[in-house]
């Protein structure tokens, strides 16, 4: 029976090795949520449009509803549960960028991947980047602001790390 054809899927999720059986047709989003109990990743359309289920697969953003669990076997995954205290997440709270919170995980995952590629983006670039995800509550205003503020903050931290002497000379910032 094709339905019952399952594989053991082993992944490294948020730095931890996790393994569970998955029918071969099971979506990665369902595997993460219902096999591994990582329900912070949300599913809004199952058609790859809304972006709520975005995760990092080997560091790159992917729609987990467009991947099968078996495709992720042996790979490294980061979900929203692995983003605690991340500057982007904190910035979302500070900027009132969250309302119902259903799309938030996907947006945080998209935004963190984007800022890794483009650490000092223009507002226009941020708008383009977060246009990978649908939000029905916020009108995107505070999401764009949150990503901009997180970029500025992470940039400042990077500068401090890059030149500790200079920052010490300037004093606490």
């Amino acid at each position: 029976m094709v339905l019952e054809d399952s594989r053991a899927v082993r992944v490294v999720v948020n730095g931890e090795v996790r393994e569970a059986d998955a029918p071969v047709r099971m979506l990665l989003s369902d595997f993460l949520r219902h096999r591994l109990g990582l329900t912070g990743t949300h599913v809004g359309c199952e058609q790859g449009v809304c972006g709520s289920c975005t995760i990092h697969l080997n560091g790159d953003p992917h729609r987990s509803c467009l991947l099968l669990a078996v495709q992720a076997h042996g790979e490294e995954i980061t979900t929203i549960e692995g983003m605690r205290e991340h500057p982007v997440a904190l910035s979302f709270a500070r900027c009132h960028a969250i309302q119902c919170g259903f799309c938030t995980a996907g947006l945080v995952m998209s935004a963190t991947a984007f800022l890794r590629e483009e650490p000092a983006p223009s507002r226009q670039a941020i708008v383009g980047a977060v246009s990978s995800n649908l939000c029905r509550c916020t009108g995107y205003q505070n999401i764009v602001r949150a990503v901009a503020e997180a970029a500025a903050e992470m940039g400042a931290q990077a500068d401090e790390r890059a030149s500790p002497d200079t920052s010490a000379a300037v004093g606490p910032g």
Binding site: R33, L38, T39, G40, T41, H42, V43, T79, I80, E81, M83, R84, A89, L90, F92, A93, R94, H96, I98, G101, F102, T104, A105, V108
Partner: peptide, 19 residues
């Protein structure tokens, strides 16, 4: 003031119906 709802959401600890 900041929202009291946000911490759970950002930790992926919200409980939505499909969770």
């Amino acid at each position: 003031v900041p929202r009291s709802e946000d911490r759970r959401i950002l930790d992926g600890a919200g409980v939505f119906i499909d969770d």
